[in-house]
Nucleic acid binder design. Sequence first.
DNA 1: CTGAAAGCGCTTACAG
DNA 2: CTGAAAGCGCTTACAG
Lengths: 351, 351
Amino acid sequence: MARIPRAKRKSAVTRIADVARLAGVSPATVSRALAQPDIVTAETRKRVLDAVRRTGYTPNIAGRNLRAGRSMLALVVVPDIANPFFSEVFRGIDQTLAATGYGMIIASLDNSTERMAQAARIVFAGQVDGVILLNGNIPKAQGRAITDAAVPIVAACEIIPGATFPQVEIDNRAATRRVVARLAELGHRRIAWLSGPADNILEKARRAGFEEGAAAAGIAREEQTILGGDFTFRAGARAAERILALKARPTAVFAANDEMAIGFLKTIQAGGLSVPHDLSIVGFDGIDYADFCEPTLTTVRQPRHALGMTAAKLLAALMANRNAKLPRLTRLDVEHLWRASTAAAPAVREA
Amino acid sequence: MARIPRAKRKSAVTRIADVARLAGVSPATVSRALAQPDIVTAETRKRVLDAVRRTGYTPNIAGRNLRAGRSMLALVVVPDIANPFFSEVFRGIDQTLAATGYGMIIASLDNSTERMAQAARIVFAGQVDGVILLNGNIPKAQGRAITDAAVPIVAACEIIPGATFPQVEIDNRAATRRVVARLAELGHRRIAWLSGPADNILEKARRAGFEEGAAAAGIAREEQTILGGDFTFRAGARAAERILALKARPTAVFAANDEMAIGFLKTIQAGGLSVPHDLSIVGFDGIDYADFCEPTLTTVRQPRHALGMTAAKLLAALMANRNAKLPRLTRLDVEHLWRASTAAAPAVREA
DNA sequence: CTGAAAGCGCTTACAG
DNA sequence: CTGAAAGCGCTTACAG
């Protein structure tokens, strides 16, 4: 026998059988009275609901899930749970999922392959009904990608090239191109690009937009500076030190994200330069910090809440119906915030 | 019969029975080879692991959980998932739980009783093995508090008075008192307190510390100003408008949290006052924004990562052993950051 | 409309 | 060391 020993049973927890006994009906009837009240008589319904109330019964989820073959849980995979960019994305996802009755498990990869494998195992173990990828990669465990797991997937923010599931992003390339065009209008020609990690999809798209914009404005390669970076505040600070040491400085610096832009800004100011008088700075993403630094940062605001909401809605549609016909790529609009960290190029002002 | 129809079964997913068949052993042996490899022969182990590898088998979690009576999931209840204060707390919790094999469900209350009830239902439904409360309240559903659910609970950041489970916080009162003492040393006597919601435990503790500090420094009630607030940036901005309209202004404003302090700072500056020359400002919490505003904000830095880690460790200990003897209250150290937003009081400078 | 029974996938006490 | 069987708690196809 495999009778589960008394000690191991959760103490004093009401099961469906307890409710059934109290109401004088079968467990099946309790189940029905709760899930589809209309198909039982009013009298039965009342007796069951009374018994439920008296016992404080809540159906056990593990039992229900095992039977139903679903968990009512979605997994959200994120590079770093503490990255401020994601906070609003989480809120959008959470609100949308909660409204559909789904819960949310968050897996933060923290740059660890072990954490990545953990996330993949959650999927293979059938622990979630769907996955939202915010990390730009398909998690794998022992060589198997979660795309093999027959669980709906949606990606957002960082797109995964070639993937066949729905994805949600902004048009990073076009937005960057537009910023460069505007900088050129302001008279900037010596423009620096402060880059993210070379293999990152956002860096690639934004960098491409930067180059297109520069080409369109007739800005020569020699007028451009490329500064290495990795999306961190520190990288921005380091780039600023390089620029401070230069004789012929760019008149504008466009960072691939806000955190680098702010790191750059703080260090450039500490080095005695005035922003935007000596140098214009632009960031990307529109995180809240961009509102708080001084001067306020010119940036491209991503619709973070809407990105999360849209991804969650697509996933909910897919979880409801695996064969739902959904757009492969959804692109949301950005907001260009021209603020105090940018101004006309020095040469133009002098002229 | 209740045979589950074929269409409803997850397609092509390997079950323990499939592995058993392939390895030529019983399901029980597969289970043992995976969970306790030492108790099967080397030969059996090899055959099972080969079959597992060939099929890509991962044990179904719902089945395991139902049998084991646990879910290997913890619930984290938070007032607002997008509040930047919590990001590092989440990371501390996540890292600690993940290291112990637990996953994390986040429930964001968003000021909604419905969301609160949802969170409570997750607990009553046995969906999680433990709960970390960051919201300062015990979730309830239909009048039943989750403390009745026989699931381990730990609270952090916002303490719940009278609760008997382990709680983790900083000494809010002492930290606030110390700040006021230091402001007094700097010559400030006309000090304003920019308050949080009156019923919030943090506001209560900090306000008490403020009053104790003022009393200790011999600052009379008439020299103090109390400004209403609710922890938001907006509330800080509104308070600044009130102060700008005043003839006799305080020389220092101490906000109950950083967001209000920054909202206050931005608006006071926009109103033409210079910080810290005309007015010193102090915040509380040490969120990242406090590093980015100009001038950098004097504040009390909470050990956010350690708060999360400590709470998760306590919960892990309790989930491993319900009867573990753990301290009721753990208090972590804060860091007092005296930065550019504070200076000696004007009168003192002039003297 | 309701009940008895099967079965979701797993683990473990029992027997051998 | 291994297998057969029970049972975790639930839902639903089937029969009445």
